[in-house]
């Protein structure tokens, strides 16, 4: 007998998200079904206003769906109270944002330690894990620098180190190269590729065809619904 298959990282069924009441009602997500397995590398693309950010907030447990069920890494997450959601974010999700979202007062090490603080780890353990994570993104020599002493690419690396430090089930990135120049953006894409090769599960929301091209699967949203979901053609991936 083989070992039982691990649960999907994302298991969504009929996810809806509506804003406002009656006349002014906006349907941001109109019944999304999405399953992402462990180790997948997925791009979510779509025109502006198609619901990408809304979907990402629900995947990241920052927001709750109006209807539908969502299990993250085998844990039901669509109807948890606020403090449980915070706990799920801490353990299972590593966020990477377009504008980095680092604490400007804290240095690289302290920024990377932040998720571990809310986990109640000892200072020594926090430091060990954070240094390890910074080393992994190639910033071992920048640990005491503050965000304003780092380049854009380095800031995004700090953010990635912060996302990795908890060994989350899912890395969730929103336009990770949106604030970077082409060359630096490519470095970040390469880093994602390496993380994928090492086994991380990654979901990227992006407009950038180059970012999408590096992923292995592409989910297209239009008007809050999935209109296309399939592997990225090899030629494109190579290209």
């Amino acid at each position: 007998m083989s070992a039982p298959a691990p649960p999907p990282v994302i298991a969504m069924r009929g996810i809806r998200k509506e804003y406002g009441q009656a006349d002014s009602r906006v349907v941001a997500l109109a019944g999304v079904d999405l399953v992402v397995l462990r180790g997948e590398y997925v791009a979510i693309i779509g025109p502006s206003g198609s619901g990408k950010s809304t979907l990402m907030n629900i995947i990241g447990c920052l927001d709750r769906p109006s209807a539908g069920t969502y299990a993250l890494d085998g844990e039901e997450a669509s109807a948890l109270p606020d403090h449980r959601l915070a706990n799920v974010r801490n353990r299972k999700i590593g966020f990477i944002f377009q504008n980095f979202n680092l604490l400007s007062r804290a240095n690289a090490l302290e920024n990377v330690e932040l998720p571990l603080r809310y986990r109640g780890l000892s200072a020594r353990e926090r430091r060990r894990l954070a240094l390890q994570s910074l080393d992994r993104v190639g910033l071992a020599n920048r640990v005491t620098h503050r965000p304003n002493e780092l380049s854009g690419g380095q800031r995004q690396r700090v953010a990635i180190a912060r996302a990795l430090v908890t060994q989350p089930a899912l890395l969730l990135a929103d336009e990770p190269t949106g604030a970077l120049d082409r060359r630096t953006g490519r470095e970040i894409i390469t880093l994602f590729d390496e993380l994928h090769a090492a086994g991380s599960t990654i979901v990227v929301v992006t407009h950038d065809p180059e970012v999408a091209a590096y992923t292995r699967r592409r989910v297209s949203l239009v008007d809050g619904a999935v209109v296309e979901d399939g592997p990225v053609p090899r030629a494109e991936a190579a290209g």
Binding site: A86, N90, L114, Y118
Partner: peptide
Amino acid sequence: TREIGIRRAVGATRTD
């Protein structure tokens, strides 16, 4: 506000 958002994203509860 943004700092609060960052802290909440990485796992801070309302109580924190």
